[in-house]
Amino acid sequence: MPIKQEIFAIVISLFLLFFIIELVRRKKLREEYSWLWLLTGSIILILALWYDLLQGITRFIGASLPTSTLFFLGLFFLILIAIQFSVKVSALFTQVKNLAQENGLLKQRIEELEREDYSPNEHESKES
């Protein structure tokens, strides 16, 4: 790999790694989501530093150029991250759904209790 490309790749991956770690440190990003991003950054860094590995992978998967391998890996990790988000969104949706339902049920219950408070007679006749 030409030295220019190598430096560029190393700088980018280092920047990505520090950026993610900084986000986690400042609690802007939960650790739960950071690991896939950190993995992606680390792999870019490793491949940039270790060109033989990149060539090895290229041969192994049958790609013609090391660049395609990089693109392929990049895409693959992006897809993984997108799936992780979809899973989390589904889980969040279920939580929102349950909260909304619970909210509706509680509101109904409060209204019922308030009515009973204001009209004790009605309450008694209900029980009889």
Partner: peptide, 25 residues
């Protein structure tokens, strides 16, 4: 009639399920 409000539109199935949760309760 008794009324349960959902805070935003959540769709037929979820509204229905809310009713069943109420009935069970």
């Amino acid at each position: 009639a008794k009324i349960i409000h959902l805070p935003f539109n959540m769709g037929y199935g979820i509204a229905l399920q809310t009713g069943y949760k109420y009935a069970l309760e």
